[in-house]
Every structure is written in structure tokens, then in C-alpha cells.
């Protein structure tokens, strides 16, 4: 699979150990961490220790620690809220452990996303759905559908800006409905055209 699509995601190129470890190993590590979180959460200092390990992970991967905080920034107020609520309902130890564990898991998952090319993750998905073959799931089709979805993001974004420009040119309104209806109708027509192209190019073969 080509490297091209990886430039669309959050992946950051590098040559560290974490970049070289297989996608499977990293994902299994994440699952193990998630499973262990129930046990880890009962000791607040253990949570902080694991969080420290994740910080080390970012440094090993060659990322600044700021990149880790960037993963957590969108949920920072929710984390503060959770800390206060857990402290208030239980004790201060849980006020640290519960939001700390969430931050650890999110930061660790972010590390996997940042160090694993998207094509490697798609390969994992395609292989992982292999056993579902007997239920009528075609793994190759799953992979192609993912690629098609990724491909549609810039198409629809381009469509949205065209519709927006037309709306400003014609009516100068900011009505969401006057934007969304033409966008969706054009998207439906584009989907028809894409469907035609898929059929013409043998997608169903």
C-alpha cells in the first residue's frame, strides 16, 4: 500500500523504536493497558507512574511533551470536572486516579496514532475482520470502503466550500438550511456519479 494516504492523517513520520514496532503490537499493548486500567485505578500513584511512562514514550518517539498535551487539551475541562466530582463523591485519591487514568489512556492511544501509518492500521482492520468472513463480511471490501471514505472527505469538503460560495454570491445569508440542503442534494448526486464509476470500474466484480 502506498504511503500517500498517510499524509492525510495524524501520523508523524519518524524512525524511533515506537515507529518501527508493528501496529499489532502497539494496539495489543493499548488493549492490555485498557484492561489493566481497572486495577491500576485503585492506586493513584500507580496511575501517575504509568502516565510518566507514557511521557517517556513520547520522548522516545522523538515528540515534544507538548504534543501529548495537545491530545488532552480538548477534554481538559471535562477532566477537571471529573476530578472534582470524584473527589467530592469519594476521596481525593480517586479525584486523581480516575481522570489520571483517562488522560493516560488517551495519551497512550494518541502515541499509537502518531507513530503508526494509516495504511498499517487499515491492514490491521482488514486482517482483523477476516474471521467475520463466515458471516458474509468481505475483508477486501471493508478495506476498499475505508479507502473510499477517506477519498470522499476532500470531495465533500470541496463541495461544501463551493456551496458556501454560491450561497454568499446569491443570497448573502447565513442560514444553515440554505447551506445544508443544496450541499446534501449535490452530495447525493455526486454519490450517484461515484456509484456509477464504482460499477463501471468493476467494484462489484
Amino acid at each position: 500500500m502506498a504511503i500517500g494516504i498517510n499524509t492525510l492523517g495524524l501520523y508523524q513520520q519518524g524512525s524511533s523504536v515506537l515507529h518501527r514496532v508493528s501496529a499489532w503490537a502497539k494496539l495489543i499493548g493499548l488493549v492490555v493497558l485498557g484492561a489493566a486500567s481497572i486495577w491500576l485505578q485503585s492506586r493513584w500513584w500507580l496511575v501517575l507512574a504509568v502516565l510518566g511512562l507514557v511521557v517517556v514514550g513520547y520522548l522516545v518517539a522523538g515528540f515534544p511533551v507538548g504534543l501529548m498535551f495537545k491530545q488532552l487539551r480538548p477534554m481538559i475541562w471535562l477532566l477537571v470536572f471529573i476530578a472534582v466530582m470524584n473527589w467530592w463523591s469519594f476521596d481525593w485519591q480517586r479525584g486523581i486516579a480516575v481522570p489520571g487514568m483517562i488522560a493516560t489512556l488517551v495519551a497512550a492511544a494518541g502515541l499509537v496514532t502518531l507513530t503508526t501509518p494509516m495504511s498499517a492500521l487499515i491492514d490491521v482492520v482488514v486482517r482483523a475482520v477476516g474471521p467475520l468472513r463466515r458471516f458474509g463480511v468481505d475483508p477486501e471490501r471493508v478495506g476498499l470502503t475505508l479507502m473510499l471514505g477517506i477519498r470522499c472527505v476532500p470531495v465533500v469538503a470541496g463541495l461544501a466550500s463551493e456551496v458556501r460560495e454560491a450561497q454568499i454570491a446569491r443570497t448573502a445569508t447565513h442560514s444553515f438550511r440554505a447551506f445544508a440542503v443544496p450541499l446534501l442534494v449535490r452530495a447525493l448526486r455526486d454519490a450517484d456519479a461515484i456509484g456509477d464509476a464504482l460499477v463501471a470500474r468493476g467494484f462489484d466484480d
Binding site: T145, G149, V153, A157, A160, L183, I194, D204
Partner: peptide, 23 residues
């Protein structure tokens, strides 16, 4: 096939719509 190509096109385009709404 449970989802023919034309349906897949609609599915993929609407995944793109949800993404565009996030912008």
C-alpha cells in the same frame, strides 16, 4: 453482496458529510 456499490458510494459520501460538518 449485502451493500452494492451504489449504496457504498452513498455511505462513503455521507461519512464525508459528517466530517465536513465537523469543520
Amino acid at each position: 453482496t449485502p451493500l452494492p456499490a451504489r449504496d457504498l458510494a452513498l455511505i462513503a459520501v455521507f461519512a464525508g458529510i459528517t466530517a465536513a460538518l465537523g469543520l
